[in-house]
Structure formats: C-alpha cells, structure tokens
Design a protein around this nucleic acid. Structure first.
Lengths: 140, 140
DNA sequence: CTTAGGTGTACTTAGTATAGTTACAGCCTC
DNA sequence: GAGGCTGTAACTATACTAAGTACACCTAAG
C-alpha cells in the first residue's frame, strides 16, 4: 500500500466543485459521485478547509473554492490530506550504534530519501488542479 | 505510513556486505546491526536474491554481491523489496460512471500519479549503492 | 557419514493505518 | 422552530507490516 486514496478523493472533490461552481453540492451528492460514504467526504473537505483550499460553513451545503483552481497545485492537495509528520519513506528505527554502518546509515539514507521525496513533490507542484479539471472535462 | 522499511533495511544489508566483503556474514550478525530478527534479514535477502542483486546459498553463511555496488542503483533496491503491483498512489476504486467527473477522473489522475512516481524513481535511479556505502563510510 | 550451524519458508501474533459506518450535537436557512 | 446539513466522535472491518516461532533442508567440517 501507499499514499492514501484520500488524495485522489480530494482531487475528485475539487474537480466537482469547480465544474459545478454555483451549485450547492451536499456531501451526499459528492459521495455519490465518488461512490463512498458522505462522512468520508466531510472528513476530507474538513482537511481541505483546514489547509485553506476551500471554505465551508457548518450546517450549509456547498463548499466553495478559497482561491481559483489555477492557484492550487496537486502538491497543495497532497499536503492537505497527508498528516504532516508522515514521511514517504519509512526507516528501520534503531540500528545498532556499536556498528559503524548501523551508526551512520540513517543520516546517509535520510539524504537519499529526502531527495527522492522532493523530486516527487516538485512534479506534483508543477500540475495545477485547474489543469486536472480541464483534462477531466476534455474527456467528457 | 508509507514505503516499507524493507527498503532501508535492504540498503543497510547491502552496505554491510560491501564494507565487510570477504567476511561471511550470518543473518544473525546482520540482524544485530539492523537491530531486528534474523528471519527479517533472511526474508529481505531472499528478495534481493530473487532480484539478482546478491547470491546466497542455502545453508551457507555469507551473501555475496551479484555485481559491483556501483552497478546497483537505489531504484534497483527499491524495486527488489517492493511487490511489483504495489502502486505508490492509491486511487478510490469505483467512482460513479453516471457522473461526468466520476467517469473520467481516474484516467486523468493516473497520468498525474505516474509522472510523480517516475520523478521519484528517476531520482532513486541516479544514486548508486556504492555512493551510499561510501557516504556511510565517510561518516565513520 | 554424521553433526553442528545456517538458510529458506510457512505460520502466527501484535500493532497500526485506512475506509466505511452509525450516531448525534450544533449550525443555518426558510 | 423545523428540516437539512455539517462537523466530529466512536466503532468495525480490513489490510499490511514487522516481529517472532518452528522446522525442514542444505552444506561444510571433522
């Protein structure tokens, strides 16, 4: 397994809001498009709201984009639904400090992992949600 | 959570074999450096062996490198310990085909995800295990 | 050829993350 | 004030991982 499907659901939600702008989309409606439970949608909308990507108000249907989709990158969405401390690469935690390799492997690997993660994030940052939404629309 | 720590353990193992070349490292010795159970090491060594990165023989201590560390990239190691079908990005599986967005979002996201994954893999491919091993040694 | 040590692998267990679900308090709007 | 919706807590089922136990089999050394 890997990166949570929250990410793909979040992208789905934002695309829906964009393409139905003006409509008041309930979490139930969105859930029927994603094909999941409305609570799952509300949870993810909550994360997007905390990240400042959408604005919602309790008790009122219809989340709105906090800024144009062209100013929201896939990386913004990724980070919104990913718990911050969650590292992409896991590391074995307590190598033996009495061993020269065990003592130093973590620092060396950290560097490699960070570079790899940055490369992925840079790629995500290069795509905006607007591009995604237009791509989806072009297939319809 | 994220990419299994098998990856970091595998890198640790290869570094050890490299730096103690000639010695016959038992899974128990390696396990004490990684600080885990010998069976975990044997399992991962098995994956490295299947991937053609090391050679082992049943009943005999001392795995050997199948080729020089300079010809083994971090991506090779990553792929060796990662089940092939395992995608980095998960996708919600059954969006509603009756919705224009639900019907097309997967294809669009697939493209974005693939690019991001490739960016990460390209970065991993640019680092050899030899570089890692030398970096570890330089800290000792 | 016997035996001690080691590998390869199946099976079990425990911990953790996720998605899905139920339930409900609180907020808006009509 | 009533209905509809959100936000969130709590629970369940599922899946993956790491760790650990057990054991059959292999090899090399004596």
């Amino acid at each position: 397994m890997a990166i949570s499907s929250r990410f793909s659901v979040a992208a789905h939600i934002l695309t829906l809001i964009h393409q139905k702008e003006g409509d008041r989309l309930t979490s139930e409606f969105i859930a029927s498009s994603v094909n999941t439970n409305p609570v799952v949608i509300r949870r993810i909308l909550g994360m997007l709201s905390k990240a400042g990507l959408v604005r919602t108000s309790a008790g009122v249907a219809g989340a709105r984009l906090a800024r144009p989709l062209g100013e929201i990158t896939m990386l913004d969405v990724y980070r919104a639904v990913q718990s911050e401390q969650e590292e992409l690469f896991a590391m074995h935690e307590h190598p033996n400090p009495a061993c020269p390799v065990g003592r130093n492997i973590q620092a060396s690997l950290d560097h490699v992992f960070l570079d790899a993660q940055r490369a992925m994030e840079a790629q995500l940052a290069s795509v905006t949600m607007e591009q995604l939404s237009l791509d989806v629309a072009s297939r319809a």
